[in-house]
Write a protein that binds this DNA or RNA. Structure first.
Lengths: 197, 197
DNA sequence: CAAAAATAAACGAACGTTCTTTTATTAAAA
DNA sequence: TTTTAATAAAAGAACGTTCGTTTATTTTTG
């Protein structure tokens, strides 16, 4: 019997991501995707049950990789400053290196598909962060607050910065914004100032 | 001659928003929309040039209303604490009152259409914020920093909180999150702590 | 009556998916 | 070693449906 050509599946995944990022979810058609990936439409259905399954699989895979990248060199027992810094740098590096994947995830996260898929997605990051936050509070390195407030303060500014960086226009009325390491560090300092007791 | 029935246009706009929020951009079809709005497909084309123009107009209108609501009771000459608090409360109230519109805007902001439309959208908020920030820095009520960093610190946490509140699941692994006024105020205090010199 | 609003019906194009056939590859048979 | 049978991958063409949009016609109202 004939073996699967994994390069084909990879091309399908990659092109699908690119189409979604560039033209939105309604820009992803199976026939256009097949053409872009250099494959017959029928071939896509060997690897994926249907259109939704294709998107779902790309999403799950990306979620997993992103979580792992964020946790590189991270330990839940780290001091709060250091742990948060590691996470910020990991995230920033990953987003800068793979802007397409970042855009895809952002688009996913804000689409109705997100709530539909969320349940089954495995996310190693959540558990690690739980311990990390508990430790930090116990050591009095972090003010006590609901986990959602912590998340909002600790990560939302980072993602917003990255989004500015990757936007062509920056803020309306201002020029293009470039996120360098100094700006990243200074913003992190502000966040730490807010979160430390 | 016959006059336009503005209720029809309103129904079209409202149903379009609902379809996009509930099913995503690929869930918005002109024929389904016509049926949902109780109107003939051709009627939509009296009010809107085409599908993209429909989305664009809804977006511009919503952008304008949202900006205005955010600026209610706000004055760029206010002290920093007070000004930011007014904006937070205005935004929070509006998002709680009109979750559909909020979801629509969030989806828009993270889709490829956003960059496409951004140029022409008028946004009274931007100019007001520019003055507000300049004033605050001059009075030494706010640390000096790039406008993008300011935005990321000052508003991203708020939007993230609201998103948690409106999400069915809250954070994965935790229960549903309810954003009450106390939590909102405490988070704002954290933000102010970060931003004040 | 004039004129614009509104509609029903229809257009070709594109959609997601499947059917049928061909191709490539492995393992057994000669 | 060569041939053959078996099997899954891959392709191409086509399925019926729905898409965005328009045309031809009717309805409403100043």
């Amino acid at each position: 019997m004939r073996l699967r050509d994994e390069l084909k599946e990879l091309a399908i995944r990659e092109q699908a991501m690119e189409m979604i990022v560039k033209e939105g979810f309604d820009g992803l058609s199976m026939q256009k995707l097949a053409k872009a990936a250099g494959v017959s439409p029928a071939t896509i259905y060997i690897y994926f049950k249907d259109r939704e399954d294709l998107i779902r699989q790309i999403y799950y895979e990306e979620m997993l990789v992103m979580s792992q990248e964020t946790l590189k060199g991270f330990d839940p027992d780290m001091h709060f400053d250091e742990g948060l810094r590691v996470q910020w740098m990991n995230r920033a590096q990953y987003c800068m290196k793979y802007p397409l994947r970042m855009h895809f995830m952002e688009q996913m996260r804000h689409s109705p598909l997100h709530e539909k898929f969320q349940g089954d997605a495995q996310n190693p990051f959540s558990a690690a962060m739980k311990t990390f936050v508990a430790n930090a509070i116990q050591r009095n390195e972090l003010v006590k607050l609901p986990i959602e407030v912590y998340w909002s303060m600790a990560y939302a500014p980072l993602y917003q910065l990255i989004k500015f960086h990757q936007s062509e226009n920056g803020m309306p009325g201002w020029g293009k914004f470039v996120l360098d390491e100094q700006t990243l560090n200074r913003t992190l300092d502000l966040v730490l100032k807010a979160l430390k007791p």
